[in-house]
């Protein structure tokens, strides 16, 4: 230890330059070192190859399906890959995925930011720790359980809310309810919101916790109320973190399969009303149609999966770019 503590005091001139370091490293490599470096670098390269392979093979299978497709892939409202000629498109799926994710985000983001603020700034000290811990654990509950709970417990309990929305907001057309079972995109969105709540909360909480104490104390010293502290010190500091947390949540909502597949009562239609059953999402459609699909049908589903892959890639990539600007935290472990 003594040697290392003396190190910083030695003159910088004794430190080898980068070029020298490289040369020294090359000269000093032993067989063990070389093997180990190759192994670990190989693993890294393997990951890159894997990502490329995922994109490549999905594209290849999609191309097989799309070359047969007689209809426009992006604007067709039908899914009939076994027909003669095969016609299928993702318009309905894109609509359903976007709508359910928007509903999920609209509910989850404000609530999650609220809980994160609650844990970091409002809850009694003794409660804050355990609450954060429990929400951490809830992030690990598998989606199939959310789906089971959603369809067997939440769906019957949505009747009242549906009636209320229809009574008071039915005139907008968006919340018109014909009285069917409440297994619509709206319910799917609510289940998604509950699912992504823990992850958005966890990441936002981490960000809020990293707000410099000085900023908050300075605001308090100027006589700010707690809300003013949050508005002037906490939120501006944590904004990019909250945005990337939301995008991580969005990425999860877009790709969620089983919970949506169980809650939604699918039909290949686009409804003006969110409360009518029908619609579908990319992931849900793949899970629902897969078991009966022919080879052509599978390739068509792979094509829709490729679209989902690209969308989540863009969303997550953007979230990571925002996070990367602040190196101190990362949502990957949340």
């Amino acid at each position: 230890m003594d040697i290392t503590t003396q190190n910083p005091t030695s003159p910088p001139a004794s430190r080898p330059s980068e070029v020298e370091q490289k040369r020294a490293a090359r000269a000093a490599t032993r067989p063990g070192d070389r093997v180990f470096l190759a192994l670990s670098r190989g693993s890294g390269v393997f990951l890159l190859v894997l990502m490329a392979a995922i994109a490549g093979f999905l594209t290849y299978r999609s191309a097989l399906a799309l070359s047969e497709n007689e209809a426009n892939f992006f604007t067709t409202f039908e899914w009939n890959p076994t027909g003669n000629p095969p016609e299928f498109g993702i318009a309905v799926l894109a609509f359903g995925t976007v709508v359910s994710s928007i509903i999920a985000m609209a509910i989850a983001v404000p609530v999650a930011v609220g809980i994160a603020l609650f844990i970091t700034h409002y809850a009694p000290r003794r409660l804050a720790g355990p609450i954060a811990y429990v929400i951490d654990l809830l992030a690990a509950v598998p989606s199939i359980v959310y789906g089971l709970w959603g369809v067997l417990f939440l769906v019957p309990h949505m009747q009242g809310l549906y009636g209320w929305l229809d009574d008071y907001l039915g005139w907008t057309g968006i919340f018109e309810w014909q009285g069917g079972a409440p297994r619509s995109l709206f319910t799917a969105g609510v289940v998604l919101a509950i699912m992504i709540l823990p992850i958005i909360t966890n990441v936002s909480r981490e960000v809020f916790r990293q707000v410099p104490q000085m900023h908050e104390e300075a605001a308090l010293a100027l006589g700010a109320t707690r809300w003013e502290v949050i508005r002037m010190a906490v939120l501006p500091y944590g904004r990019s973190g909250v945005i990337s947390a939301s995008m991580l949540g969005l990425g999860r909502a877009l790709g969620e399969t089983m919970a949506v597949a169980m809650v939604l009562s699918p039909a290949f239609t686009i409804n003006a009303s969110l409360l009518d059953w029908g619609g579908g999402t990319f992931a849900q459609n793949i899970a629902a149609k897969f078991s009966e699909a022919s080879v052509m049908g599978r390739d068509a589903l792979i094509a829709s999966g490729l679209v989902l892959f690209v969308i989540t890639l863009l969303v997550n990539g953007t979230a990571r770019m925002i996070v990367a600007r602040r190196k101190e935290f990362s949502g990957a472990n949340a």
């Binding site: 390269v45 990951l47 995922i54 093979f57 892959f309």
Partner: peptide, 30 residues
């Protein structure tokens, strides 16, 4: 290389499970 690996590991965390399934399907099975 390290930068690329870091970025793609991050991006990979967000791959939907169904897409991972489709990939194995298209290579291993199909």
């Amino acid at each position: 290389l390290a930068k690329a690996v870091t970025f793609f590991v991050d991006v990979m965390t967000g791959i939907p499970s169904i897409v991972a399934g489709l990939f194995v399907l298209s290579t291993w099975i199909l």
